[in-house]
Design a protein around this nucleic acid. Structure first.
Lengths: 213, 213
DNA sequence: TAGCGTATGTGGACGATGTTTACTTCGTAG
DNA sequence: CTACGAAGTAAACATCGTCCACATACGCTA
């Protein structure tokens, strides 16, 4: 395969920023291979360090993956944010609200298509059964979630949504876009051309708009 | 962990049904651990056979996983079918159509909750970049897809859907339910109680009904 | 400035996995 | 009955994650 030669044999005994270097290396592996490609030893190799050095910063491979995953999630949020910034509050609040919701969907889907590896990593999980961590309800994607919530709030404020239908609407909207992204990335829409996917995305967001009620 | 003792040291040199035994073992591993838990060596162990024997039937671990995945997909379809059988064509075709669509959604989501490991395995993929297999467009879940199509056709026939909005509606509906399932299995809805999830599922299907237009 | 404690890395080893190459066993076709 | 080929075995290798004991040098204190 690719024999990434170590950049340079660092001269200092201490690396200086190892934890960060490991996550960065992991990120790159995730980018081009998904969660399964995040190899601890390979990360240390790229950092020019012995395998065990990683254990000074992570309890194990799982924890490294977790850090990488976290980084991926923030990229997702960033993508949404970028899309969101494009729509400014015009005179019609309803138009603004609709645009916001669309931005969330498009930013999300767009990232999935642009960075499949990272996207899949972002939403991969450790054994979903063994983390009875009560505190991590908020550990995932609150940023992206908040952006979505924001868009939905705008819908509510502008009268496009009733108070009742606003509740938990995040989950419904999120489900929809996330589902399409996965269908595209690893489902039957695998070979569908990008424009077609985006068109489907548009319809999807419209469906949410109309269907949330 | 669990030290599944070999059932019995078979007396015949030939196993007789090895390929099947391997897939079955793999299925069980998938059930209780997802795709990552499908270990080739472990499968051969459970079949009471040497590791290499597997290579008579599969090119490698990936191919075994693929077979298991395929089995999981058919389970998904079966779950939908079960739900579908519950709704009979009454006098009102629109009611029937709606019930059908709901059945698909509920069957799908229900399976995800009942068999998380298999569900996750069903929708896991090899490196999504390296299978330029043109023939496998239909290799995945056509069964489940067909059931969904059927339900949507009923919607069309009964006048709940326009011809135009019928096109590609599978993908929109599928995205939605699949997305919720994943949010529940490995997303922020991880710890949400089952009733709440089902309630969300109902709302979701309603959203699709209304939003497809 | 000398020394020392400790955070940071190293080295070597272990068990598990996937996979390859060479060999053995045995059902069966001719 | 014999020989061929399908089915399974044995031993070995590379890689991965991880544990243990040990080495290094940074930076604080005396």
């Amino acid at each position: 395969m690719k024999k990434n030669v170590i950049i340079e044999k660092r001269k200092t005994f201490r690396h200086g920023d190892l934890r960060n270097a490991l996550v960065t290396a992991g990120l790159e592996m995730a980018r081009s291979g998904g969660p399964k490609a995040v190899i601890l030893r390979e990360a240390t190799r790229q950092a020019g360090v012995s395998p065990n050095a990683a254990y000074r910063y992570f309890a194990g491979q799982a924890e490294l993956l977790d850090a990488v995953r976290s980084a991926c999630l923030s990229r997702v949020a960033a993508s949404i944010e970028d899309e969101m910034k494009k729509c400014r509050p015009g005179r019609d609040p309803q138009v603004y609200a609709r645009k916001s919701l669309r931005a969330v969907g498009i930013g999300y889907l767009g990232f999935a298509m642009r960075e499949p590896g990272m996207f899949r990593t972002a939403f991969s999980v450790p054994p979903p059964v063994d983390s009875p961590n009560p505190a991590n309800t908020a550990s995932m994607g609150l940023n992206a979630f908040q952006l979505l919530s924001l868009a939905l709030d705008r819908m509510l404020e502008s009268g496009l949504l009733t108070k009742k239908s606003r509740s938990d609407a995040e989950y419904l909207a999120w489900s929809t876009v996330h589902g399409l992204a996965l269908l595209v990335l690893e489902g039957p829409l695998y070979r569908m051309p990008h424009e077609a996917i985006l068109a489907l995305g548009e319809r999807l967001v419209t469906m949410v708009e109309r269907g949330l009620n």
